[in-house]
Amino acid sequence: MKQKQMRVKISNNRPLLDCGLFSICIITIFLVMSSCFYERTANGALSETFVSVAKNIKPSVVNIRSTKVSKRDKLNKGRRNPFNDLFPRNLPREQPGKGSEIDYQGSGVIIDKKGYIVTNDHVVKGADEMIVKLYDDREFKAELVGADPKTDIAVLKIDAEDLKPAEFGNSDSLEVGEIVLAIGSPFGFEQVVTSGVISAKGRPNMRIAGYESLLLTDAAINSNNTGGPLVNLQGKVVGINTTIIPQTGDYLGISFAIPINIVRKVAEDLIAYGRVTRSWLGVTAQPITPQLQEILGLKSTIGALVSSIEPNSPAANAGLKSGDVVVEYDG
């Protein structure tokens, strides 16, 4: 009798179990559909942000074509070949410059309405002529205002109207993992946009420039893309794209940009003085690691170990020597 009652009870609870399973299935389907919907919405919003940023920054990005004439061509320029006068029909016409001009293309960023443009020093270094092409296909000859090889920054100027300067951001506030866009003119194409993230900050010792505190990104930056802007999702320039590593001209997964806070200071000095004004100590130092602390018998890792001193430098005149440990300074 008890067994029979037990079977009856189980039989009576089955509809409840079926209902519960049905409810779980409905909830699961709802959650999956909601997740897909939110994912599509998020992707759509991110895509719209990319499009908006690209549209806003493109008018501020320029293509730079620099031309360097060989020394031989410069020497021959203006010289007349007497045989051309004697045998004008038998000799081909001399074409000075043909086959002796070296062209290099890069990118740049308009920084104000007066026509000042920031680019890389290596884009225009040694150039005899620089042509700037704007977003609307207008072309202008540019003059070199100043260059700073130590940071690989140069400033050009063009005489043009209706320019749209880029808006600067704050490179110090960048976070690793933050999405950025790189704009430039790789391989002769114009206004190419690539995306990536900030992979690291403050990378020194990359042998790209003398003063280094570089941003590392996985956004594709090829050889002709250098000098263009690296922008955040607010459309503000946070860096100037520079040489890729290794220096082969091909993108191999990592690229570098000069932080815009450094670029602004360098550009301001170049515009005002034609050169960059810097304080100079003449000392190379390195941080105190726990290993150095133990070897040197120091009480803490606070300070810096002097690695080398440049002769006749302010540091040498002050009596600093290689091997000294600086723990504090006055001033």
Rank of each mutant, 00 (worst) to 15 (best):
K150T: 00
N225A: 09
T248I: 06
I183K: 10
V32T: 10
T242H: 00
R138W: 05
V237G: 00
G249W: 05
Q234A: 07
T226V: 15
L16P: 06
Y211N: 01
E139Y: 12
N232P: 02
A154D: 08
G228W: 01
K133G: 10
K125V: 08
I245K: 00
D18E: 15
F83C: 13
A166E: 10
D103C: 01
E175Q: 09
L216V: 05
L305N: 13
A166Q: 03
S52A: 15
V263L: 14
G319R: 03
V327S: 10
I110R: 06
T119F: 01
V263D: 00
M6L: 14
E178M: 00
G188H: 02
D148E: 04
K9Y: 09
A182Q: 01
E178W: 01
P92G: 04
N84F: 05
K141R: 10
P259H: 03
S173F: 14
E328I: 04
S23W: 11
D159W: 10
D162W: 05
T28Y: 05
D152T: 01
V62G: 00
G331D: 03
A219T: 00
E294M: 15
L46A: 09
Y38S: 08
M33N: 13
Y211P: 01
S223C: 12
F37P: 07
G319I: 02
K77C: 08
G297R: 01
D152Q: 00
A318T: 07
D137C: 10
E167L: 09
K157S: 02
G169S: 06
D269T: 14
V263N: 01
D103M: 14
I271M: 06
M1V: 11
K71T: 13
L16W: 12
C36A: 15
G253K: 03
K114L: 12
K236W: 05
Y211G: 00
K77G: 09
G188A: 11
V109Y: 04
R93A: 13
V231W: 02
N222L: 04
R65F: 08
N120K: 01
S100D: 12
D18M: 14
V231C: 04
N63Q: 12
A127Q: 06
S195G: 10
